[in-house]
């Protein structure tokens, strides 16, 4: 329920894109996978998931479609757009660069 920290806010977008890169999911599934992957460390609440999804959709990175879910109920499925795929690549590269730099600094401190 609480707002995620800034770091998470930035990475949440990337995580969602990453999850959707594999296959389309609905909101519930995305939430479940987020929890699995991040082992609850990031503490992404379901409350912050939906605004993030809507924002990504409006930026044109993901698109939504109403479909029948596994248990035959109507659910909104999100999938990655071409543009979203590019964005994911960009953010991944970015992330790798930043995290490499940060871990370098952290190690430096330890030494």
């Amino acid at each position: 329920m609480s707002k995620p920290s800034d770091l998470v806010q930035g990475t949440l977008d990337m995580l969602i894109l990453k999850i959707l890169a594999l296959q389309p999911w609905n909101g519930w599934d995305i939430g479940q996978r987020l929890k699995q992957i991040s082992s609850d460390v990031l503490g992404v609440s379901d409350g912050s998931l939906y605004p993030a999804l809507h924002k990504l959709e409006h930026r044109g990175w993901i698109r939504s479609q109403w479909k029948a879910s596994e248990n035959n109920r109507r659910a909104k499925f999100y999938s990655l757009t071409q543009l979203g795929r590019k964005q994911l690549e960009r953010e991944t590269t970015n992330w790798n660069r930043v995290s490499a730099a940060i871990s370098g600094i952290v190690k430096l401190k330890e030494a």
């Binding site: 329920m1 379901d46 605004p51 993030a52």
Partner: peptide
Amino acid sequence: LRTLGGITQIEQQCRDARGGN
């Protein structure tokens, strides 16, 4: 309901996310 948080707030946040239209 507790896990999800306030429905009305989420709705508003979603609307805001759509914002900048």
